[in-house]
């Protein structure tokens, strides 16, 4: 358990470092939903190359790191109905709120943005209630 926390902290530092590079070098806020969403709805066409390069890094580095681990289970549910509903909610919600865990959470809260804190409280409360409801009450997940 404690090693999980240590790796969490190390991974967190790398995440923050990624955000720092993207801000200081490229002048952009590292928000995963915004970078992906801008490509999906066409609003990010102007800097599409930069976005694709960023996303390629997110996708590819785990490919390189994966062989270093003996076994990895992401514990994802096998229920496609749940996955589709969850994916739609995440896609719609992050674009309406204009940010997710990386944009509002990491980048927003670290510059003391009120919107970052409000969004983070809202999605954590909703996520917590969701898990309680769907796991303990309905038993879906």
């Amino acid at each position: 358990m404690v090693m999980d926390w240590v790796w969490g902290l190390v991974g967190g530092l790398l995440i923050g470092l990624g955000g720092a590079v993207y801000l200081l070098a490229n002048g952009r806020i590292m928000g995963a939903s915004g970078i992906i969403g801008g490509l999906v709805d066409g609003t990010g066409r102007r800097d599409a190359v930069e976005r694709v390069a960023f996303l390629a890094g997110v996708f590819l580095l785990p490919v390189l790191l994966y062989p270093l681990y003996t076994s990895i289970d992401t514990h994802i549910t096998g229920n496609w109905g749940v996955l589709i509903a969850a994916g739609l909610l995440v896609g719609i919600g992050t674009r309406i709120a204009n940010g997710c865990t990386s944009g509002h959470g990491v980048c927003g809260m670290s510059r003391l943005a009120p919107r970052g804190f409000i969004a983070t409280v809202a999605y954590i409360l909703a996520g917590g209630l969701g898990v309680v409801l769907f796991r303990h009450v309905l038993g879906v997940i």
Binding site: G87, L89, I96, A97, H104, A119, G130
Partner: peptide, 15 residues
């Protein structure tokens, strides 16, 4: 901001 974050959180918890 609130509605979007609540929807996002629900999906985040679900999957």
């Amino acid at each position: 901001l609130i509605i979007g974050s609540v929807l996002f959180g629900a999906g985040w918890g679900l999957a």
